[in-house]
Amino acid sequence: MTGKVEQEPGYVLHRRAWRETSLIVDLFTLNHGRMSVVARGANRPKSSWKAQLQPFQPLLLDWQGRSEMKTLTAVEGRPGPVFERTERLYCGFYLNELIQRLLPPHDPAETLFAQYIESLDALARASDDEPVLRRFEQALVAALGWGFEWDRVTDTDSVVDPDGNYYYDPEQGILAQPGEGSLLQGLRGDVLKQLADGQFETPEARRLAKRVMRVLIDHLLQGRPLHSRNLFTSWRGGANDAQGTTGD
């Protein structure tokens, strides 16, 4: 038993130097979830792996090893999406940081993997990045077992009334009555309906989805910082507003 895996689809989340000439690479793979491999010699000046082991490039990876830390034996890749705009690159960092911080290692998450590919593609092409981020966040919380339905009221076990106003608590979901820990209030029923139909495009839907997802993700992070979010905020605050960024 050498624990040999071949041609596994995956993406690089993060790299760090290890010893003189090697890299430890954190990967997000189709069948093995988030995991780390040692890429021996990849930190040498002329290693061809250096160009391939970059975030956002679709890769096929071979590795082997019996211990927790596997050894990378082959990498095949093709150039991935090209992010023409700065904020799209930062959105990509945000996805990677979310996976790195929240997805437990060695836990296959095929649906999330598919959503990840779709999200990167959409970030490179689509005119609007916010719905892409919200859909990815939704897939992520579902993979972590924190999924919820936008139009399901948990305390009354009913469907959202378009004329109603609701509360949100990450531990309980959408609520009709303020619970003890209700962190958000005034969620409009008609907007929740839009989100349940997968419509993230209207300004109200955007704002509501962003508020709810932020509360839930912060809850899951348990106080750990999300640096890519800070980077985004600092970039948006510092660069001139004429860049046409996503609104709050």
Partner: peptide
């Protein structure tokens, strides 16, 4: 010419845009 190097270059370029 890495993803992080690109992100850094873009950040600085955007901050100098005006």
């Amino acid at each position: 010419p890495t993803v992080e190097g690109d992100a850094t270059a873009h950040y600085i370029a955007d901050r100098l845009a005006d």
